[in-house]
Computed example of a mutant assay.
Amino acid sequence: MGYYVTVENGVNLYLEDINSKGNKIIVFLHGWPLDHNQFEYQYNVLPGMGYRCIGIDWRGFGKSDSPVSGYDYNRLSDDIRKIVEVLQLDDFTLVGHSTGGAIAIRYMARHNGLGVSKLVLIDAAAPTGFTQETASKLLEETLHDRPNMMQGVTDTFFFQYITKSFSEWFLQMGLKAASWSTANIIMTLRDEKLYADLPGIHVPVLITHGIHDKVIPFSHAEELDKSIQNSQLVPFFYSGHGLFWEEHNKFNRLLMQFIEA
Rank of each mutant, 00 (worst) to 15 (best):
G2H: 08
Y3C: 09
T6L: 04
E8D: 10
L13I: 04
Y14D: 03
L15E: 02
K21E: 14
K21Y: 09
G22Q: 04
I26L: 14
V27C: 07
L29A: 02
P33F: 07
D35P: 05
D35H: 09
H36F: 15
N37P: 01
F39H: 02
F39M: 07
Q42W: 08
Q42S: 07
P47E: 07
P47A: 08
P47N: 09
M49L: 15
Y51W: 12
I56R: 03
W58D: 03
R59N: 04
G62S: 08
P67V: 02
P67I: 00
G70D: 03
Y73N: 02
R75T: 10
R75L: 10
D78V: 02
I80Q: 01
I80H: 00
I83R: 01
V84C: 09
L87P: 01
L87I: 08
D90M: 08
F92E: 14
T93W: 01
V95L: 14
S98F: 08
I105T: 09
Y107E: 08
M108N: 05
A109R: 12
H111P: 00
L114R: 04
K118P: 05
K118S: 07
V120M: 14
D123E: 14
T131S: 13
Q132M: 11
K137T: 13
L139Y: 13
L143A: 03
H144K: 02
D145L: 03
P147R: 06
M149L: 15
M149C: 11
Q151C: 01
Q151E: 15
V153P: 00
T154H: 06
F159A: 11
Q160G: 11
T163C: 12
F166R: 15
S167I: 09
S167C: 10
E168N: 13
L171C: 09
L171M: 13
A178G: 10
T182W: 05
L194K: 00
D197L: 06
D197T: 09
H209K: 04
K214Q: 15
F218H: 05
S219W: 01
A221K: 03
A221S: 11
L224N: 03
S227V: 07
S227P: 01
L233A: 12
S239H: 01
W245K: 01
E247G: 11
R253V: 12
Q257F: 09
E260Q: 14
A261R: 11
A261D: 10
